[in-house]
Lab assay of single mutants.
Amino acid sequence: KKRQCKVLFEYIPQNEDELELKVGDIIDINEEVEEGWWSGTLNNKLGLFPSNFVKELEVTD
């Protein structure tokens, strides 16, 4: 099962390897990279994003 999260706050990337987040976006979570940062895929782009800007969705079948 893939983990997903929903964006709660807009985020403007500070580095090229970060994702731009818009409220309501759904991100496929890949892994936790470091404290406070997750790796995920949004709009076919893989990048990092701050985990405190999102809420993980309940996994359903």
Rank of each mutant, 00 (worst) to 15 (best):
R3F: 05
I12L: 14
K2L: 06
S51D: 07
S51H: 07
T60M: 09
D28K: 08
K22L: 00
N43L: 05
T41E: 12
D25C: 03
N52A: 12
D17T: 08
V7I: 00
N30Q: 12
E32T: 11
D25K: 11
V7M: 01
I27K: 00
K6R: 14
K1N: 15
I12K: 12
D25F: 02
N15E: 08
D17K: 04
V54W: 00
R3N: 06
K22I: 08
C5L: 05
I29W: 02
V54I: 11
R3V: 08
N52T: 13
E20I: 05
V59Q: 10
L21P: 00
R3G: 10
K2M: 13
K6M: 15
E34F: 06
S39E: 11
L57F: 11
V59F: 15
F9Y: 15
S51P: 06
K2F: 05
W38V: 05
G47Q: 02
S39R: 14
L46K: 14
G24Q: 00
E31S: 07
W38E: 00
N15M: 03
N52I: 10
T60A: 06
L57T: 08
V54S: 00
W37Q: 02
E56T: 12
L21C: 01
T41Q: 12
W37M: 09
N52P: 09
L46N: 14
G40I: 00
Y11N: 07
L48E: 04
S51I: 10
E20C: 14
E56V: 11
Q14N: 07
F9D: 11
T60K: 13
N30W: 03
S51K: 11
E34T: 13
I26S: 03
V33R: 14
I29S: 02
L19D: 02
W38D: 04
D17F: 09
N52D: 13
K6S: 12
T60P: 15
L19Q: 05
F53V: 10
Q4V: 14
K1T: 14
E31M: 09
D61I: 09
P50C: 01
P13R: 13
E35V: 11
D61V: 08
K45C: 12
V23A: 04
F53E: 01
P50T: 07
L48H: 08
L42Q: 06
E16C: 05
L19W: 00
G24M: 09
E18R: 01
D28E: 15
L21Q: 01
K45F: 02
I12H: 10
L19G: 05
L57H: 10
F49D: 01
D25V: 02
W38P: 01
N30T: 06
S51Y: 04
L46C: 15
E58T: 10
N52G: 12
K45W: 00
F49C: 00
F53G: 05
L46A: 13
L21M: 07
I27T: 00
F53T: 09
Q4R: 15
K6D: 03
W37I: 04
V59G: 13
K22D: 10
I27C: 02
E58H: 10
N44R: 08
N52V: 09
K55R: 13
E20S: 08
Y11H: 08
N43I: 00
L48M: 11
E16H: 01
T41F: 08
V7E: 00
K55M: 13
L42K: 08
L57V: 09
T60Q: 14
L8M: 15
W38M: 09
I12F: 13
V23D: 02
D28M: 06
E35H: 08
L21G: 07
L21E: 05
K55S: 09
N52F: 09
G40V: 08
V33E: 10
L19V: 03
G36H: 06
L42A: 06
I12Q: 09
E16K: 06
G36K: 08
Q14T: 14
I27R: 00
E58N: 12
W37R: 06
V7P: 00
I27E: 00
G47D: 03
E56S: 07
K1C: 09
F53Y: 13
L48F: 10
N15I: 01
E35Q: 11
V54N: 01
T41M: 10
W38A: 02
E32V: 11
F9W: 11
I27S: 03
I29C: 04
I12V: 09
N44T: 03
G47M: 00
V59K: 08
E32H: 13
D17P: 04
K45R: 12
V23H: 03
D25G: 01
P13A: 04
K45G: 03
K2A: 10
G47F: 01
D61L: 08
N44V: 01
L21N: 07
W38L: 13
R3A: 03
K55Q: 14
Y11V: 02
L46D: 13
K22M: 03
L48K: 15
V7L: 04
E35C: 13
E18W: 01
E32G: 10
L42H: 09
P13W: 01
I29A: 01
V7G: 00
V33N: 15
V7T: 00
E10M: 04
I27Q: 04
C5N: 04
K22H: 15
E16Q: 13
K45V: 04
S51F: 06
D17M: 13
I29G: 08
W38R: 04
E58A: 08
C5K: 03
K2G: 13
D28F: 07
V23L: 07
E56M: 10
W38T: 03
E34C: 13
P50W: 02
E31V: 07
K55W: 06
D17Y: 10
D28P: 02
C5F: 07
G24A: 01
E56L: 12
R3L: 10
L57I: 15
D28Q: 05
E10N: 12
K1G: 11
K1I: 09
K6W: 11
V23F: 02
L48Q: 08
N52E: 14
T41L: 07
G36T: 04
T60E: 13
G47I: 04
V59C: 11
D28T: 10
S51T: 12
V59S: 15
D17L: 11
N43M: 11
N44Y: 05
V59H: 13
G47T: 03
N15Q: 09
F9Q: 14
V7W: 00
Q4L: 15
K6V: 15
G24P: 01
L46F: 14
P50K: 09
I12Y: 14
D28C: 09
E34D: 08
F53R: 13
V7Y: 01
S39T: 12
L8Q: 06
N15Y: 04
Q14I: 07
L8R: 07
E31C: 06
K22Q: 06
R3K: 07
N43F: 11
P13K: 09
N43T: 01
S39G: 05
E58I: 09
N15T: 11
Y11F: 02
G36D: 10
V7A: 12
F49R: 00
F9G: 08
N43A: 12
N44G: 12
G36R: 07
E32I: 08
T41Y: 12
G40N: 02
P50D: 03
D61Q: 13
T41S: 07
E32W: 06
T60H: 14
P13Y: 03
G47W: 02
Y11C: 01
E20M: 09
E34P: 02
E18K: 06
E20F: 14
N43S: 07
F9C: 08
N30M: 11
I27A: 03
G47N: 02
I26M: 07
E58Q: 15
G47L: 00
E16V: 10
E35I: 05
I29L: 09
L21S: 02
E18H: 07
K22R: 09
K1E: 04
I26H: 06
Q14F: 01
R3W: 06
I26D: 04
L19P: 01
I26W: 05
V23C: 05
K22W: 05
E31A: 12
L21T: 01
S39N: 09
I12D: 08
T41P: 00
L8E: 12
W37C: 08
D17A: 11
K6E: 12
N52L: 08
E10I: 01
G40E: 01
K55I: 12
E58G: 14
L48C: 11
E58Y: 12
E34Y: 11
I26K: 03
L46V: 14
